[in-house]
Simulated scan of single mutants.
Amino acid sequence: MAGLAASGSNPDVDLLYDINGLAKDAPHWFDRVMEFVGEYGLLLAVVLLVLACWWSLRRRAGDAAPGVAALLWAPLAAALAVVVNVPIRDFVARPRPFRDHPGLDVLVSGKTDYSFVSDHAAVTMALAVGLFVAHRRFGLVGIGLALLEGFCRVYMGVHYPTDVVGGFALGTAVALLLSPLAMALLTPVVRTVGRSPRAGRLVRSRSAAGSSRTEPDPSARGARSGRERPVGAEERDLAA
């Protein structure tokens, strides 16, 4: 299977040339920006998005354990996607596109491993889908960043478009299909950590924990208002 896209015209290679051709027409400084963004920047942005979501969830009133557990699953799913990709890469053994297509403008040198599937695409999408399970709005932003990551990998000339699509599929499958099992295992652990005086701050902020303890029960408040009468109310009723 080493010659999966070695030669010949096909949509995968055509799209590779179309997207990578943008790098040839772009200014040198823009290519350097895309090199950093595609190699490190977008992955860092998704990680920061996960941290921002964690900060938001722990400040929310109510039971934060399921949301924090889902968020904890996101990096675990990304790591698992990389592990699963190791045998996939060795089995497919697809060379990097610049090895079979010398005319490409390669922005990152030193890539000697196989091309299918893209680790960057798998990791960012696994993080984004795990983030989506925890928080829809943050997750949609993360998925947008993951799609941009896939575009950058093709733009840089280090992956075929199908490498990126395969990475997206792998990251989504790992994060989504294993999510119920991960939630069942992680939620009790997170709840246990949340009850700890010190480590509990990882699950809930001090203000959120305080508000949940002091917030009165509406039903109890209504019952009390129905039972309690102002001082002297009985005497006024008899006088009337």
Rank of each mutant, 00 (worst) to 15 (best):
L44P: 00
P216W: 11
R32V: 03
S225Q: 14
P87Q: 09
L147H: 00
L176Y: 15
V68N: 03
L140D: 00
I19S: 01
F116A: 03
P161S: 05
V108L: 14
F91N: 02
R224S: 07
P27T: 08
W73P: 00
A209N: 01
N85I: 06
L80D: 05
T192L: 13
P27G: 06
A209S: 13
L71G: 05
V231R: 14
L49Y: 09
G194P: 04
Y160V: 14
A220H: 11
N85F: 05
W55K: 05
A146P: 01
A173L: 15
D25W: 01
G226Y: 06
L131Y: 03
G38R: 10
M34L: 13
V193Q: 06
Y40L: 14
A93Q: 13
A146D: 02
R60N: 01
A45N: 04
L148Q: 04
G226T: 11
L4P: 00
F168L: 11
S118D: 07
T187N: 11
P218E: 13
V47D: 09
A199H: 11
R59L: 04
V68E: 03
M156N: 08
V13K: 06
D12I: 11
D18Y: 06
P230G: 13
G38Y: 09
D237S: 12
L42P: 01
F116S: 01
T192W: 15
D18R: 15
L145A: 02
V46K: 04
R236D: 10
L16G: 14
V123Y: 04
A70K: 14
L15E: 02
G38N: 09
G110K: 12
A182V: 08
L148C: 02
R195L: 12
A79Y: 04
R195N: 13
F98N: 00
V108F: 02
C152Y: 00
L15W: 11
R96N: 05
L72Q: 03
D119R: 07
V13C: 00
A5C: 13
H159I: 10
S211F: 06
R94L: 08
H135L: 02
A81P: 09
R99K: 11
A6I: 04
H120M: 10
G142I: 04
N85H: 08
L181K: 01
L177R: 07
G232W: 06
A122N: 10
T192V: 08
D12T: 14
C53Q: 07
